[in-house]
């Protein structure tokens, strides 16, 4: 097995499958180079996690808050910004074991598992609640994560169910409709046979004098070929 390379990051993040993780551990057991790389990666992540959040300048904070509109800054939003890493329970409002900043912080959204076309890199301003607040400010509350997940799953099922209904409605019967290539030239001849006897349509529209094949002669000339023809009134 070659060195782990890019898989080191996935191994540290726990993103490898069980089988791949087992193979990686087997490799680490006999490869000191990769073992050192893994240790370095873990150390770096631990140090980054222990660093305090960067504090924006007062000027930047005021300018960002002024973007809220003529009614003044938006009410501070507590909790997690969609698209960003999910906060740990200790970070949530009401947790007293860790101090929270009263200042807005910039939170970078991480990549999602959606397709590349759906990925939208963005950064959002996250004004967190005032220090010591036990309740989120009025105007918006956050659902617990499980509730949101349940809503998302049910919503997905509902929409796909709706899509299924729409699909079934449009397909009318479920079977794929046949692909049609209209025999336009033949239709022109059929048009001529039915329009040519209109007394004021002086020439059979559609009959351009092109010789008709014998098969067409039989078809257009045979009364029995006009299956299901309505007789009209007075016939």
């Amino acid at each position: 097995m070659s060195h782990l390379g890019d898989r080191i990051t996935d191994l540290v993040d726990g993103q490898l499958s069980a089988e791949a993780q087992e193979r990686a551990h087997a490799h680490l057991a006999r490869c000191p180079q990769c073992r050192a790389s893994v240790e370095a990666e873990r150390l770096m992540k631990a140090r980054l996690a222990g660093m305090p959040a960067p504090e924006p300048s007062e000027d930047l904070t005021q300018r960002l808050l002024s973007l809220g509109g003529p009614q003044g800054p938006l009410a501070p939003r507590v909790g997690h910004v969609p698209g960003s890493p999910r906060p740990r329970p200790a970070d949530r409002p009401g947790s007293a074991d860790r101090p929270r900043s009263a200042q807005p912080v910039l939170v970078a959204a991480g990549p999602t598992r959606l397709s590349a076309a759906r990925r939208r890199p963005f950064s959002r301003v996250l004004p967190v609640s005032p220090r010591g607040s036990q309740r989120p400010p009025a105007g918006r509350t956050r659902r617990p994560g499980r509730t949101r997940l349940a809503v998302a799953v049910l919503g997905t099922l509902g929409v796909f169910g709706l899509g299924g209904v729409v699909h079934a409605t449009t397909q009318a019967g479920g079977d794929s409709p046949p692909t049609v290539v209209p025999p336009v030239d033949s239709f022109v001849l059929e048009h001529a046979t039915t329009s040519g006897d209109l007394p004021f349509a002086d020439v059979p529209a559609g009959w351009d004098g092109v010789p008709v094949s014998p098969g067409d002669v039989d078809r257009t000339g045979s009364q029995s070929s006009l299956i299901g023809s309505n007789s009209g009134a007075g016939r």
Partner: peptide, 18 residues
Amino acid sequence: MIRVLVPLRLPLLVVVGL
């Protein structure tokens, strides 16, 4: 010369009471 026999049906269809 090819002959196509076509029934004269439409005037009969365009019957009274249109």
